[in-house]
């Protein structure tokens, strides 16, 4: 599989370089007045954590503050998972942990000792796409592509949740089975924002995959 950033000067390299330079020249903002803050200034702490990423065991030394998202991107260089809002509002960072989709930006890496994590890199490869990836290509379920890895991880997990009997806000009955209808897909995908507005094509892609499974 091709590794992102293989070219001599990649866009990522330039961006990372400018960010580092900016960080060096930025004076840290004064801390907010926080209730319950420690009396003494705490020092950064690192801890060891082992994660099973896309089937491979990886052990990392991370600052306790490192989110799962930053561990994936910055420590493991799995940059398929995107940072959008970093506050759980946009869904760009969605990954599948122990079979469940979560916002990797709102979880600490150290909270995931031993967990099996599937990122977009683990769903499929350019040569062998996951059916959901293939359906997104077929139905043009993106424009700029930034939200797409999160959309696809979420989409795969949504079809699993429907099958597993997880109800949604638009389910007519709580006790019957749940179907991958357009209304259900739209509601269940509401935690993934697409500013290009590819929503209708994303619904088509998911409907296609859901139908193929039935």
């Amino acid at each position: 599989m091709q590794t992102p950033g293989d070219t001599a000067i990649s866009r990522r390299g330039i961006l990372a370089g400018s960010a580092a330079a900016a960080a060096l020249t930025t004076v840290p903002l004064a801390g907010a007045d926080a209730q319950g803050a420690a009396p003494a200034v705490a020092q950064p702490t690192t801890m060891k954590v082992s994660l099973k990423i896309n089937g491979t065991n990886r052990t990392l030394d991370v600052d306790t503050r490192t989110t799962l998202l930053d561990a994936l991107r910055e420590n493991l260089h799995l940059t398929g998972t995107k940072k959008g809002c970093d506050h759980g509002q946009c869904g760009a960072c969605t990954v599948i942990v122990e079979g469940k989709r979560i916002n990797s930006c709102l979880s600490l890496a150290v909270m995931h000792e031993g967990d099996a994590i599937t990122t977009i890199e683990g769903l499929g490869t350019p040569d062998k796409l996951h059916p959901m990836q293939a359906a997104f290509v077929k139905h043009d379920g993106y424009q700029c592509g930034y939200c797409t890895p999160g959309q696809i991880c979420s989409a795969v997990a949504v079809l699993g949740e429907i099958k597993a009997g997880v109800p949604s806000h638009v389910s007519a009955s709580l006790t019957g089975g749940f179907e991958a209808s357009t209304a259900e897909i739209r509601e269940r995908m509401s935690g993934n924002i697409c500013r290009c507005g590819a929503y209708s094509n994303i619904v088509d892609a998911m409907t296609d995959v859901a139908g193929a499974k039935a």
Binding site: N103, L106, G165, V166, S168, H169, L174, S190
Partner: peptide, 29 residues
């Protein structure tokens, strides 16, 4: 909690309230 069969059957208001909040990703965590 929202998906538990007993909750869906006997405490529907609780299942309904939970799935009315946040997003699927947040409710999983």
């Amino acid at each position: 909690l929202a998906a538990d069969e007993r909750v869906r059957r006997d405490y529907g208001v609780l299942s309904r309230a939970i799935v009315a909040g946040a997003s699927g990703q947040l409710r999983n965590k």
